[in-house]
Every structure is written in C-alpha cells, then in structure tokens.
Computed example of a mutant assay.
Amino acid sequence: MASKLPIVRQIKYSFLLPSILLIVISYGIFSLMGISIPIEESLIVYLVVSYTGRAIIPKNHRKGINYIKNNQYDEALVEFHESYLYFSKYKWIDKYRHIVMLSPSQISYTEMALLNMAFCYGQLGNGEKAKELYQQVLKEFPDSQIAITSLKMFEAASGLDFNKQQYIDK
C-alpha cells in the first residue's frame, strides 16, 4: 500500500557502525556472563538503548510527524520549530546522532525540521513561506537534495529556470 504522505529515509551506512558495535559488545558481555542465548539479550539491549534515545531526545520531531499523519499541519509546525531550536542549540547531539540516539539517518534533525516545516506550509497553502524555508535549508545545507528538488518544482511551476547558486548566495 502506498504512503499517503511523501516519506524520505536516507541512511548513512557508516552510521550503523555504533549500533553493530553495541550488539557485538553486549553479545560478548552476555557470553562471558554465561547467558545461554546472548544474541537475544544483545538485541534487547540494542532495542532498549535505541528506542530510549530516539523517544526522548527528538520528542518534538516525533510529535510533529504524528501531527502530519493526522493532517494537523499548524500543530506540526510548532513541534518542528521546537525541534529546530533544540537541535540548533545542541548541535553536537545532531552531529553525533548515530552515537547518541543510534540513528543512522543521513539527514540531520535540524535539516529535517526545516524541510518538514516547509512541507507543512505547503500543505497549508502558504507557498511563499514554504519556498522561503526551502531556501533556508539550501543556505544551511547546500547539498540538500530535497530542498533542491522542491525549489526546482517551485521554479518550474513559475516558468523559471532553476539556479541553485542564487539561493545559496542570498
């Protein structure tokens, strides 16, 4: 069944290394302790650590996603804005999300917050604000393919040619 909303999940495979290491190390510890089925215990440790980190730290992001799923875009905007502020303040958490939250996401939570805010504004019919946020994404994250693609669509709809540099230089 197709998704009702566009969902993009980009994984940076090197970010999976801390997750694998946690499983291997806990397997070794459980083996040394004489646990009969250490792989199951290791996977439980991984799931607890992973779920806890992803449930507590990006709580506004998760709330925003849930609001989007329920077409509550105004409420989602508030949550994504809070997420953006949090991860802008604590850049190290976002930078090391693969260790802190065991998140293999290639896109940072800061970038995701801005992209999701732009999406919400688009769904609310405020194309100008959406375009402004996609431009902000491109300034902060010049390689953001989602922002580039979105701005190309805006330009195509306006009958203009896309020039990435014009958004970065502003």
Rank of each mutant, 00 (worst) to 15 (best):
Q106D: 09
L22K: 15
K69L: 12
Y51R: 13
A156F: 12
A76T: 09
S103C: 06
H98D: 05
L32D: 07
A157W: 09
I107Q: 11
A118L: 08
W92R: 12
Y109C: 03
V48W: 14
A113L: 04
I11A: 01
S3L: 13
A113V: 03
F119N: 05
L124T: 10
V137P: 00
S14R: 14
I146M: 03
Q10R: 12
S36N: 05
F15L: 03
K129Y: 12
H61D: 13
R54W: 11
A55N: 13
I39N: 02
M101Y: 02
L16D: 13
Q10T: 15
S144T: 12
I29H: 06
Y109H: 14
Y73E: 03
S158C: 12
I7P: 02
V137S: 01
N66R: 15
K63C: 02
P58C: 10
G64E: 02
D161T: 10
S36F: 02
H81N: 09
E82V: 04
V100D: 00
K89L: 06
K170Y: 04
S144V: 11
I148P: 00
A2G: 08
S108Y: 04
P142M: 08
I57K: 02
L77T: 08
L5R: 12
M112L: 12
E128S: 15
F141D: 01
V49W: 09
Q165H: 11
F154R: 03
G127C: 12
D161H: 03
A118E: 11
M117F: 03
G125T: 14
R54F: 13
Y51F: 15
N126F: 15
G34C: 12
Y84N: 05
Y121Q: 07
M1I: 06
I56G: 07
Q72I: 09
A147N: 04
G34M: 07
L124S: 05
I44S: 03
E132N: 15
L77I: 15
A55P: 04
L16G: 14
A76V: 06
C120F: 05
V100F: 07
V48S: 07
P38E: 10
Y134N: 06
S19N: 11
E111Q: 06
E79A: 14
L17P: 12
I99P: 00
P38A: 10
K170G: 02
V49C: 07
G64H: 00
I65W: 03
H98K: 07
Q135N: 01
A156L: 13
M1Y: 09
N116V: 03
K164P: 01
L32H: 05
L43Y: 01
E75P: 00
F154H: 09
A118M: 11
P142D: 08
K63R: 04
F15H: 09
L77N: 10
Y86T: 12
M101T: 01
K4S: 09
L47S: 15
Q106H: 05
D74G: 07
S19C: 04
K164N: 09
I37D: 00
L114N: 05
K89H: 04
S19Q: 08
F119Y: 14
A113M: 06
I168E: 07
A113K: 01
G34Q: 12
E79V: 03
L115A: 06
P38H: 11
Y167T: 02
Q106W: 02
V8Y: 07
I99G: 00
L43V: 14
K164W: 10
G64M: 03
